[in-house]
Write a protein that binds this DNA or RNA. Structure first.
Lengths: 213, 213
DNA sequence: CTATCTTTGTGCACGCGTTCACAAAGACAT
DNA sequence: ATGTCTTTGTGAACGCGTGCACAAAGATAG
């Protein structure tokens, strides 16, 4: 029986072994003292807890480049997701196969949701259409929404929304890149108030009018 | 002079006003007691600290659906990013305009990086090509990489990599969806400390350390 | 100039998550 | 059986980030 110790797993994941054991303990006592964790059993238990063993039908609304990329993304199936339908508002796209699946028109959205028992929807429409699509999804019974459109969606209580901003990660990289570049000048992250204030350009310095949203 | 108080900002952002003030204080003393923060000045200071005022040329390697979606993504320009080049290994794509910009061939990767002073690269190739592309980018001088390919890249010290897995957010939604469903049925199990913050994501998201692939 | 009012900037205390450290549990050898 | 050895599961201590509460600072009015 192949096993792993919390120590091995912790080293591999780069975390503290005690924390890992405590985390596992929330799922139950699946380890054997003096031996470790049965790999296969542990994988199954974690998979079950995370919902990987269930089948989650999802719909993708908005089949532009991003929607098509998502439809083709291989990582979904292996994590228990099944793309039940691709939906787009453009009548010209209806019937066009994307990732081996015909695109359906927005008119049929409610029926598709209902027929497939979909509770998770992915929105990859332009920003302008997102809120309206969101409302139709929710009205049709969707209770979790993954939003790729650059808008904050407003939803009733009980509906989960997660917003994915593709530029945020890039932003973080740029932030660290800036740190790397400016490290030789001021060592610490905390900039002394006086020094920082002195970096201000004149009252008429080139100041951007609006913070990018 | 238009101003905002920490109280107003905190209410809008849904956070504690003291925390917000303390956070701002790390950037310097930009507020005026009894008045608040000068909006324009504050925006500029935050923008500068985050690197939004700099121009970051980036290259996107792998112009499939995802690469095209990224090239068309409007959020980049407003955050200080400039797509310097689109690169693909397919000779048939060379010259094809995507997002108003001709796709260039991988052969010219090094020259493109060098000529444009690019230090940030985006990889949206298939998994099999990612590591090789990564190595060429690094050799050419790139020190930050945003990886959309479903592979873990190995890089030398001093190079930052951030991996974006489009299915992770979906995974999190499914996890909570499962919770919703199982909540009314059995409430006896121990509930692990998982906090779901709507439309907000930590640096690494609230994803468990260990997860089966 | 003094008084009053508003809001910042921050010392301090509290709470929560992480880590330490060890007793308990099981495997395995004798 | 009994003892030794390994590794889990967890109580307790620690440390860090968050939030409270207030003095300091500046605006504004009299």
């Amino acid at each position: 029986m192949p096993t792993v110790s919390s120590e091995e797993l912790a080293a591999a994941a780069g975390v503290n072994s005690a924390k890992l054991r405590k985390d596992f303990s929330y799922l139950g006592s699946y380890g054997t003292r003096g031996v470790g964790y049965d790999v296969e059993y542990l994988v199954y238990q974690i998979s079950r807890e995370l919902g990987l063993t269930q089948d989650w039908p999802v719909v993708i609304v908005g089949i532009g480049n991003l929607g098509a990329a998502l439809a083709n993304y291989g990582g979904f199936a292996s994590r228990g997701f099944r793309v039940a339908a691709l939906i787009d508002a453009d009548p010209a796209m209806a019937g066009t196969p994307v990732a081996g699946m015909p695109v359906q028109h927005t008119d049929d959205l409610e029926k598709i949701i209902s027929d497939n028992g979909v509770s998770i929807g992915v929105i990859s429409t332009p920003a302008g259409a997102a809120q309206q699509v969101c409302e139709r999804l929710v009205a049709a019974g969707v209770t979790s929404i993954l939003n790729f459109a650059p808008t904050v969606l407003s939803v009733p209580d009980g509906v989960d929304v997660r917003k994915v901003d593709l530029s945020i990660e890039l932003q973080i990289l740029a932030f660290h890149e800036q740190r790397k570049a400016g490290e030789e000048a001021s060592d610490d992250g905390v900039v002394p108030p006086v020094a920082a204030k002195q970096q201000r350009k004149g009252p008429d310095g080139d100041v951007p009018a609006v913070m990018p949203a």
